[in-house]
């Protein structure tokens, strides 16, 4: 999933300070799963904003609405009835959702309430970590299912570097050395020969080096 975290309340308050009617929009997809921008977080933020404004003696109308998927025009259309009654839209989706709202509702300021973080997985309840860098050329098949691009602090493709200690990365004891994990997994799979093959310099074009990326599926595109 795409993970995100709420911005500090102060920053959000400042960004919406000049508006009296705010449409606060959540998303039922990734940001709901990582407890950052689903229906519940929309409720909490609305309540927090409301109290902040009351404290300042200001009355602001906050309309809450959570879409099935904010990055999809079909669902974004659903807001068309509500947008007219708002001075600004505050989005609790990832950056893709924020931009989809901005594209559809061109005359409304759309503000982000979240900082979009990374593509990750849930490690355990309440903990998410980065897993994929979306580099456009997956090497997981030869790295034991552990990504060196996303999970090595120096994105070393022929690791580990000299800073690995007791399975941990030199940057922090809280960070696993991706190459230690890769090596252990390759051993478990009986594939240590894969380690000996040097991985060539990466072509970063599919990773975004060739500019913004688009996928076109001829059979589906209209």
């Amino acid at each position: 999933m795409i993970t995100a975290e709420r911005k500090p309340l102060e920053e959000i308050v400042e960004s919406v300070a000049s508006f009296d009617r705010i449409l606060l929009v959540g998303c039922n997809e990734c940001v709901t799963v990582c407890a950052a921008g689903g229906r519940k977080e929309v409720g909490l933020l609305a309540s927090a904003l409301n109290m902040t404004f009351l404290k300042g003696g200001k009355s602001v109308q906050i309309t809450e609405h959570t879409l099935e998927r904010q990055c999809d025009p079909e669902y974004v259309e659903e807001l068309s009835q509500l947008v007219g009654g708002a001075d600004a839209i505050l989005s609790m989706a990832c950056g893709a959702g924020v931009q989809e709202l901005a594209r559809r509702y061109k005359d409304k300021p759309v503000l982000p309430a979240l900082n979009t973080m990374f593509m990750g997985a849930s490690e355990r309840a309440g903990v998410w970590s980065e897993r994929c860098a979306g580099c456009g050329n997956c090497v997981l098949g030869i790295t034991g299912g552990i990504c060196p691009i996303a999970r090595c602090s120096k994105r070393i493709m022929n690791g580990p570097c000299g800073g690995s200690t007791n399975g941990k990365c030199e940057i922090s004891d809280d960070v696993d050395c991706a190459w230690h994990l890769i090596w252990e997994r390759l051993k478990a799979l009986g594939q240590t020969d894969l380690y000996e093959v040097n991985m060539d310099a990466k072509d970063w074009r599919p990773a975004g080096g060739a500019g913004p990326r688009t996928i076109v599926r001829e059979d589906l595109a209209e």
Binding site: G159, N198, A201, K202
Partner: peptide, 14 residues
């Protein structure tokens, strides 16, 4: 920003 366009092994090869 952490560049790491290449890693040290790829660097040697270059």
């Amino acid at each position: 920003a952490n560049v790491h366009d290449l890693d040290s092994v790829q660097f040697l090869r270059m």
